[in-house]
Design a protein around this nucleic acid. Sequence first.
DNA 1: GTGAGATAAGTTGATATCAACCTATATCTC
DNA 2: GAGATATAGGTTGATATCAACTTATCTCAC
Lengths: 151, 151
Amino acid sequence: MTEPAPEIGHAATLRVRDSCLCLHAQRAARALARHFDDILRPVGLTNGQFSLMMALNRPEPPVMGQVADLLAMDRTTLTACLKPLVGRGLVTASVDDRDHRRRRIALTRSGRQLLAAAYPVWQAAHDALEGRLRAHDPERLRDGLLALGRL
Amino acid sequence: MTEPAPEIGHAATLRVRDSCLCLHAQRAARALARHFDDILRPVGLTNGQFSLMMALNRPEPPVMGQVADLLAMDRTTLTACLKPLVGRGLVTASVDDRDHRRRRIALTRSGRQLLAAAYPVWQAAHDALEGRLRAHDPERLRDGLLALGRL
DNA sequence: GTGAGATAAGTTGATATCAACCTATATCTC
DNA sequence: GAGATATAGGTTGATATCAACTTATCTCAC
């Protein structure tokens, strides 16, 4: 009756490194974030700020919960991410008329203008990215990422 | 000669929301991080700490640059991530004998033991995850994520 | 062996991320 | 309508993330 070895071998390391979907997703997310941050830096937005502001660009300004769901982001993270955008006058958060618990998040005029400037920059970079990924079937990849985001 | 409209329509929003690989990758990364953080919480590690410590579990302790590359993580992020692990006595960082610019990052005995406890937990969760993703071809998904991480 | 350039890592400051806890408002039940 | 419950958000504290800048060390050319 020997106790199980209290340590694990290098083989386990290789298994995690090669197969862990979480690790691979974090890697991909970091690399893509850096890439789009670089692309969008001249415009003055990060990749996350761009996605967030895009989520706000709709006829009826969404409430926080909707946006957090759309971005698969914690509610409280959204609160924090809004702070710099509100500070720069790109976004406003105002209490909903019908339900005073809700906050309607809306782009300001200058937010919409900045987003309009960022959009073609994103478009060009994204087209280039898809081109480089042709061998990996971007459509399928998107589906897979979507499935992961639904967990 | 009209100026281009300074704002963009809702259609652009939908295009970004549906197609942006960066957004989809961030969504997936956040969801998976939360999931594995939950799974590993009883053990006392986050998903990132688990991956990081796994990367250290090898015959010759790696130097920081190697680990940062493996995780597709900024060098300075790695410095920050090591801090709590060193503080808990799970990891040590020591100057390399041959090249004094380098830091060898190694697991301590208790780090190896904690990792050994975390491994079967990860394994079970990862098997379950792959099962849920059968329809999305996890192998292919991993390849795609790997390609994204190489940008 | 000295100085120039390259390489490895740390520091600072800003933003992002989440859990745990808290407050305000709405809804439901009686 | 009063109290219980549910829902929407905010706050705090810890960790993660990176850019810009700095320090220490090494290597190479001479």
